[in-house]
């Protein structure tokens, strides 16, 4: 059974379409890329997948997450569903963490909630240990110091690692990463990408990876869906789609990526 199935999803605002007739599905452990230019509806699709759309945007069609229909489901049902099935990592490390809470507190929160759901008590020293272990897993140096810090006291790349740790704390079956490396410098980008790749494999999580950057997506996923102006123009395994693009838009993406690579290597 698939973890997330989107079937004929339409999103509209004031009657105007934002996403039209979109379908995709992700099974356990699968890694799917959602690629497309800015404003093509990638983030909205991810929000719709978890039932977290802004209220002004109306969904129709079908979204099943962990076997539960999301569209039209009450928050009470979705709260429980989201907690165990999916977790988010976002683009902007600045707004990914609550500025008023120490990093340790923020990581402890989902850990505790998860423990409560599993019917075990988690507090005090045991909780502290799990927080530090999690910070270590996302390869943060000096986890004790980071846990005591406020978000503004650590770097953007470190904040993004904390955000990943928080997402892992829920032990989700599906990780949704919405342009998680876009706001970072190139070196940090590569590190975060490697981290996500490793963690997803290690834990057998499914991954929905959203990006406008073809080389980044190609590196980390097995299948892609190419979106343009709210419509999926092409879908399939990475090799097929990027090796032999059928749609003009995909072709232009591939050409742009090649030109960029060539420019980097200094060949005309």
């Amino acid at each position: 059974m698939s973890l997330l199935t989107i079937d004929g999803l339409n999103l509209t605002i004031d009657g105007k379409p934002l996403v039209s007739n979109l379908s995709l599905s992700i099974g356990p452990g699968e890694r799917l890329g959602l690629i497309g230019e800015s404003g093509s509806g990638k983030s909205l699709t991810a929000m719709a997948a978890t039932g977290l759309l802004p209220r002004a945007i109306l969904p129709s069609g079908s979204v099943t997450l962990g076997g539960q229909q999301v569209i039209g489901a009450p928050d009470r049902v979705l709260d429980a569903l989201r907690a165990t099935v999916a977790a988010f990592v976002f683009q902007e490390p600045l707004t990914a963490l609550d500025p008023l809470l120490r990093v340790g507190r923020q990581v402890a929160e989902p850990l505790q909630r998860r423990a409560r759901r599993d019917g075990r008590a988690l507090a005090g020293a045991a909780l502290n240990r799990e927080v530090l272990a999690l910070l270590e897993q996302v390869a943060l140096p000096q986890p004790e110091r980071i846990a005591r810090s406020y978000p503004h006291e650590i770097s953007g790349g470190q904040r993004q690692r904390v955000a990943i740790a928080m997402a892992l704390a829920c032990r989700p079956q599906l990780l949704i990463a919405d342009e998680p490396t876009t706001a970072l410098d190139v070196t940090t980008q590569a590190e975060i990408l490697k981290l996500i790749d490793g963690l997803v494999r290690e834990r057998g999580m499914a991954l929905l990876f959203i990006s406008h950057d073809l080389p980044v997506v190609a590196e980390i996923v097995e299948r892609v869906v190419v979106m343009r102006k709210g419509v999926a123009v092409e879908a399939g395994p990475v090799r097929e789609v990027f090796g032999a693009p059928r749609h003009d838009y995909t072709r232009s993406l591939v050409a742009a990526a090649k030109a960029f690579d060539a420019a980097l290597e200094g060949t005309p």
């Binding site: 929000m47 978890t50 977290l52 928050d75 709260d79 429980a80 989201r82 907690a83 165990t84 999916a86 977790a87 988010f88 976002f90 683009q91 902007e92 707004t95 990914a96 963490l97 609550d98 500025p99 008023l100 809470l101 923020q106 929160e109 989902p110 909630r113 759901r117 955000a163 928080m166 997402a167 704390a169 829920c170 949704i176």
Partner: peptide
């Protein structure tokens, strides 16, 4: 509008939890 709210919602925090943990303090 902040991402940490969406992240908290995704991890199963209720509206009331969001209000008292994140919105009011901020």
């Amino acid at each position: 509008l902040m991402d940490y709210i969406t992240a908290a919602r995704t991890s199963g925090t209720s509206w009331l939890g969001i209000v008292f943990q994140h919105v009011l303090p901020n």
